[in-house]
């Protein structure tokens, strides 16, 4: 029955990991707080924050709070799940199995994307109810497509956090420091262009910055952003996400080798 690693389906590993993530989510009611209750609070705070800030304040409120909710789930959750593997002591048997760990991470990220989208949906609902009606979106279809793509770009950064958690038990330290800086720096709460100019080149190193700028272009008429239009943003987001995916593939291989050299897989 034993199979070579090449024979273990990557898709099956991903689906198994996704399934496990769902089961663990269902088994642990404390997740209701960040995934269901927090978006309601984010939505209300964002609504009050942007109220009266121009004709498209509703869109700003939805994007700001929605991204805050999804950012945490998709990026933070992806890395945190690997940190939990260390705590549970399941990292060793998982790495020892023939399945590449990258695909285990991928399954978790898919689930985090789903939960992030649910959070985004809750924010949308709360803001719409608070405002008494939905925002005016010039191109709803394109908005939805770009919204989903933003999740993919967030996930591409999340993979690197997961790699950091495999690399060292101290990854939580890096993530806790980086989380808010990335959140502001990539334009989740408000456009990056509002930040000091010197931060913009740094922000453009991250795929979500491009995707979020594109999303604002298509949802807020008159939005100028970086000034090069949503199409350029989209190309930038696709290219940078592809680069991140490539880096993640390479990094996971090296990280797995590194932890076998150092022997820290059982540390937590």
């Amino acid at each position: 029955m034993a199979l070579a690693a090449g024979e273990v389906s990557r898709l099956r590993t991903t689906v198994a990991s996704l399934r496990l993530a769902v089961l663990q989510f269902m088994a642990d009611p404390q997740w209701l707080v960040p995934s269901m209750i927090a978006p309601v609070i984010f939505g209300l705070v964002s609504f009050e924050l942007f109220r009266g800030a121009g004709p498209y304040f509703l869109t700003y409120a939805i994007l700001g709070a929605g991204m805050m909710s999804m950012w945490g789930q998709t990026l933070y959750g992806s890395g945190w799940a690997t940190g939990q593997d260390r705590v549970f002591g399941t990292l060793e048997p998982t790495i020892q199995s023939p399945s590449p760990y990258l695909y285990v991470v991928l399954g978790r990220i898919l689930w985090n994307i789903v939960i992030g989208l649910v959070g985004g949906g809750i924010v949308y609902g709360v803001v719409v109810v608070a405002a008494g009606g939905p925002p005016a979106l010039p191109n709803p279809a394109l908005f939805v497509v770009l919204f989903l793509f933003v999740m993919v770009t967030l996930a591409s950064v999340g993979v690197l956090f997961a790699a950091a958690y495999v690399y060292t038990r101290y990854a939580g330290f890096i993530q806790n420091i980086g989380e808010f800086a990335f959140y502001v720096g990539t334009g989740c709460m408000f456009p990056v262009i509002l930040l000091p100019f010197w931060t913009n080149p740094i922000a453009l190193l991250f795929p979500p910055t491009w995707a979020l700028d594109a999303l604002r272009y298509v949802s807020i008429p008159g939005y100028t952003g970086f000034g090069w239009g949503w199409q350029v943003d989209l190309v930038g987001a696709v290219v940078s996400t592809a680069v991140y995916a490539g880096i993640a593939g390479g990094i996971f291989h090296r990280v797995e080798r590194h932890v076998l050299e150092v022997g820290n897989l059982s540390e937590y």
Binding site: S9, R12, A16, S17, F88, G89, T94, P98, V104
Partner: peptide, 28 residues
């Protein structure tokens, strides 16, 4: 590999689901 101990298992899910997950990782 059996390292044993209190850790090394997904404690919030049942035994069958633990085994199902690893059966998939091993390509059974």
């Amino acid at each position: 590999l059996v390292l044993g101990g209190e850790r090394g298992l997904y404690s919030r899910i049942n035994a069958r689901e633990n085994l199902r997950y690893f059966a998939d990782l091993y390509g059974i």
